[in-house]
Design a protein around this nucleic acid. Structure first.
Length: 509
RNA sequence: GGUCCGUUCGGCUAGUCAGGUUAGGCCCCCAGGUUUUCAUCCUGGUAACACGGGUUCGAAUCCCGUACGGACUACCA
């Protein structure tokens, strides 16, 4: 079971809140690691200092705490392979870049972004595609065209430079992906990617490979958007002479409507969250909704995400994190993108809500009751919750399903009155008061027995009485078993509601 | 434009590697049933192998092509 050689990492960039695609990637990493007794590592990839967003890193940590995903190593918990934040590893990347330079796998390039931009526009106008590759590099300003002397001179002068990977010409890179199988690419269509930026920081590509190697990552499980850079990464491992990890590129999460990758804006546009937790943009102050704040249980959220792109191969759908861990395998991850479906997400939450203890639900509901202006007994709330919980998807739905336990009807559903309040109803309800008052043990069973006996003795219609009764108690033809309701209400309140109903609805001619 | 990846009911998907099933399940939707009401629940139903060629006795499954979708194509990750 235990296999300490299995080491995976989730490596987000703290440029904003993590969206559910990222959470799912992390989840699959977690499940894979736990399944094999390996380690799950959190590494922060903050090599782009221009995109730093305050609070984003904390958000990421908070989100995983809420989901119940725990890291074995990483920024918050430490570990033997730290530091786990790339900005703290800055110096380290330099020596590795040197190594590549010495081996001839990389070179200095002095082209400015402006120069390159101009070339790109030029090519575009000629309907050609500009690729900084083996051919184009011959015409540009770099250590290959300039020679060692000129290069050193420029560097000594303090000219800004980047270091690029020297992509070989016309070689076929054969890669294996656990999910997609064999993938082949010819290096001639690839470009000389920048490995080291002029600001002294590595790019993702370099830092990623160096860190994965140093942290002894065994499996790289990441989003499909990284598949196009896999050849570069593979070539980098080879250039260093390092053993490669295994790769698994996960399918993307798509918009529920139309096409395209699920994006941060879709949530607001379509009215559902795309983030695990609510996020307040530090710059604009704009708020994006979160699954937590929308009332999702973390278990339901994780369960729902797990099933987007993976399935156990049998017909089970409800899984705890432990059960997911047990059942998970990368081989059963699908190849194609999955559309996120908010309706099914709500269904998952319903499953979890129904299974949750009534006490727990009542305690979660209490603040909502208070918000509505009702200070209710927790015991009563627990009872009411137990009767209506299978009608709700979210805790916040519960109040609307049981408020009549605590609030007398203010109105009486017009259609129901019209249909169910007959000419005899007034007198029958008046009579019912006498029947139920003074029942020694005002339990559901007792009152039901007494009332049904009365209906039978008098030869009244069951539906006639019960609907009218429900109408005066609830105000509408809805809700759980009526005798359960009045048990909770108690005799006094029941009688008063009948009185109020008689007064409000009146006699029907 | 180029490169790579993908394509089974409206959505998530099983089945594809090892060709032979009435192509299954869940969500949604619809219809019945149960219930004093609503909801739950139960039963049933609608609905799919992108298209075109091959290979084969037989193709969702293997091969080729086409279409469509997506990702990538930054001194962003």
């Amino acid at each position: 079971m235990t296999n300490s050689n299995i080491r995976v990492r989730f490596a987000p960039s703290p440029t904003g809140p993590l969206h559910i695609g990222g959470v799912r990637t992390a989840l699959y990493n977690y499940l894979f690691a736990k399944k094999h007794g390996g380690s799950f590592i959190l590494r922060i990839e903050d090599t782009d200092q221009t995109r730093f967003v305050p609070g984003a890193e904390q958000y990421i940590v908070d989100a995983f705490n809420w989901c119940g995903l725990t890291f074995d190593e990483g920024v918050t918990v430490g570990g033997d392979y730290g530091p786990y934040k790339q900005s703290d590893r800055k110096e380290l990347y330099k020596s590795f870049t040197e190594e590549l330079l010495e081996k001839g796998h990389a070179y200095y390039a002095f082209d400015t972004p402006e120069e390159l931009g101009a070339v790109r526009i030029q090519y575009e106008s000629e309907k050609k595609t500009f690729i900084y590759n083996y051919e184009e590099r011959k015409r540009l300003r770099n250590s290959i065209t300039l020679g060692a002397e000129e290069t050193n001179k420029l560097i000594d002068e303090g000219s800004p430079f980047v270091i690029r990977f020297r992509m070989p010409e016309d070689e076929t890179v054969i890669m294996n992906d656990i999910i997609r199988g064999k993938v082949e690419v010819n290096t001639s269509v690839l470009d000389d990617k920048i490995l080291f930026k002029s600001d002294g920081m590595p790019t993702y590509h370099l830092a990623n490979i160096v860190d994965d190697h140093l942290m002894k990552i065994s499996h790289v499980i990441r989003g499909e958007e990284w598949l196009p850079s896999l050849p570069l990464h593979v070539l980098l491992y080879d250039a260093f002479g390092w053993e490669k990890p295994e790769f698994a590129h996960l399918p993307l999460l798509l918009k529920p409507d139309g096409n395209g990758k699920l994006s941060k804006r879709d949530g607001d546009r379509l009215g559902f969250p795309v983030f695990p937790l609510q996020w307040t943009d530090p710059k604009t102050g704009g708020i994006s909704s979160g699954f937590r704040e929308d009332g999702y249980f973390p278990g339901a959220f994780v369960n729902m995400l797990a099933m987007l792109g993976w399935n156990p191969g049998d017909e089970r759908e409800i899984f705890s994190l432990e059960e997911l861990t047990e059942a998970f395998s990368l081989e059963r991850v699908g190849k194609s993108g999955a559309k996120f479906d908010p309706v099914k997400a709500a269904w998952y939450n319903h499953q979890y809500l129904v299974k949750e203890d009534d006490e727990v639900l009542a305690n979660l509901l209490m603040p909502i009751a208070i918000e509505n202006g009702y200070f209710v007994e927790i015991e009563q709330l627990v009872n009411a919750v137990s009767m209506v919980k299978d009608r709700a998807n979210f805790v916040k739905d519960l109040w609307g399903q049981l408020d009549f336990f605590f609030v007398r009807p203010e109105t009486y559903d017009e259609k129901a009155v019209k249909k169910r309040w007959k000419a005899d109803s007034y007198d029958q309800m008046e009579e019912l008061k006498g029947v139920i008052s003074g029942i020694p043990d005002f339990t559901s069973e007792n009152t039901e027995k007494v009332v049904k006996q009365w209906i039978e003795d008098k030869g009244y219609g069951m539906g006639m009485i019960m609907n009218a009764f429900r109408l005066v108690i609830v105000g509408a033809l809805k809700g759980p078993h009526l005798f359960d309701i009045i048990e909770l209400l108690g005799e006094e309140e029941t009688l008063e509601r009948i009185d109020q109903g008689l007064h409000e609805i009146g006699r029907k001619e």
